[in-house]
């Protein structure tokens, strides 16, 4: 018998921590956490946009300079950026194969990081200047 030396180990015990699926759970978990956070944050964001819709430049800056809109907007940006990075990652893994997959994944991460940084920078600049 090939498995004599593993006689007392279960099939699960033999493969645990060996396979590729080590960080898949973390990604799925983060996707669920950001999804859940984005439900109220998105509803607030839509509310905020409706509020800002008919304001002029100074009104918009004053509103986004208040703590609550600023903090919730920052939360929306960060949760959204992580969520879209994970979502586009699953699309890339499904449709892009071979070497270009690595480039696509890297481009996705960089795009989402830059977008988040640009939004956070702008939102903080509105609040602090």
């Amino acid at each position: 018998m090939a498995n004599d030396s593993d006689g007392l180990r279960t099939p699960l015990g033999r493969v645990r921590f060996l396979g590729a699926a080590r960080n898949g759970t973390g990604e799925a978990w983060l996707m669920h956490v950001t999804s859940l956070a984005l439900i109220p944050l998105t509803l607030y964001f839509v509310w905020l946009v409706l509020d800002l819709l008919h304001m002029d430049y100074n009104g918009v800056r004053e509103e986004l300079g208040r703590p609550l809109p600023a903090i919730l907007l920052l939360a929306f940006i960060i949760a959204g950026a992580v969520h879209m990075e994970l979502g586009m990652r699953s699309i890339i893994v499904d449709y892009v194969h071979g070497r270009s997959r690595a480039w696509a994944l890297a481009a996705n991460t960089c795009f989402c990081a830059l977008l988040a940084l640009a939004c956070v920078y702008a939102a903080l600049r509105i609040g602090f200047t």
């Binding site: 986004l64 640009a118 939004c119």
Partner: peptide, 11 residues
Amino acid sequence: LLLAWFLIAAS
């Protein structure tokens, strides 16, 4: 990107 444009413009 619309949100990013909006925030950068407002800032």
